[in-house]
Design a protein around this nucleic acid. Structure first.
Lengths: 132, 132
DNA sequence: ATCGTTGCAAATGTTTTGCATGTCA
DNA sequence: TGACATGCAAAACATTTGCAACGAT
């Protein structure tokens, strides 16, 4: 557990949305933590590997991060207008993936499943478009 | 409707998966179409704006594209060593996605599911390790 | 002394933009 | 001619890596 990882977690603990590495870095500097951008990138990498942090790719292509609600395997339902995210457990999907993978002779399989749509708030708030 | 747009659509018409801009460009060259990479980028941009093409961001951060409506919806099981790909139909997963999406009030949902592993050939061809 | 962490600078890879040229009505 | 499409080269952008210096055990 490195200093940079602790600092990144401290920032993510305060924020409930997704933050990009650069935003995390700016907030760290604002707090007075002197951590390099490189270390922020390295920290989020290992936090993601440790399943402590979730990644989400914005439509602009940058990776954004937030603290996981749970450390077990789960998937995301993401609103493509406002970015609101719901964590979803999918035991049935996990079982299906495991069996179909084995049926085809594959080993060491991993999977990613992401669902994007428009959430109820954005559906009713009509005319709202992505601005950024 | 520009020449580049027509060329990109022609490539996407043949492929049912998602292709990156660079893959589209390579396929165009292979076909004999002389189109610059820049024009491919500009073409997919306007095709996306026109809602003729769907975008998907890979976990690696690159944008991939496919023709809209060509939703012969299936998923891929990809060997991360040799690249061999098996197409998989997953009606159960589709149903689950639909219901969980609706339960959370989301509309216009799309999903991507990717499974990667090591296929039987690569497992038996011993000594092969992930190099990248 | 050793080993892991740090951060600068430089490299990488994707995508965008400036600009001069080509093309077609 | 005029407006637009093209493509090269260079820029912009997020991210990764090389490497030398640092700190703790």
């Amino acid at each position: 557990v490195t200093r940079a990882e602790r600092a990144v977690l401290a920032v993510l603990a305060d924020e409930r949305g997704f933050l990009s590495a650069q935003q995390i870095h700016s907030l760290l500097l604002a707090r007075g933590d002197r951590v390099g951008l490189t270390s922020v990138y390295r920290a989020v990498q290992s936090l993601v590997a440790a399943r402590v942090v979730d990644v989400h790719r914005t439509s602009g292509g940058e990776a954004t991060y937030r603290r996981c609600g749970s450390e077990s395997h789960h998937h995301h339902l993401v609103c493509r207008l406002c970015g609101r995210t719901v964590e979803i457990a999918a035991p049935g999907v996990e079982r299906w993936v495991t069996s179909v993978t084995r049926d085809h002779g594959f080993r060491s399989a991993t999977h990613t499943l992401e669902i994007t749509g428009v959430c109820d708030r954005c559906t009713s708030a009509d005319g709202n478009e992505i601005s950024a």
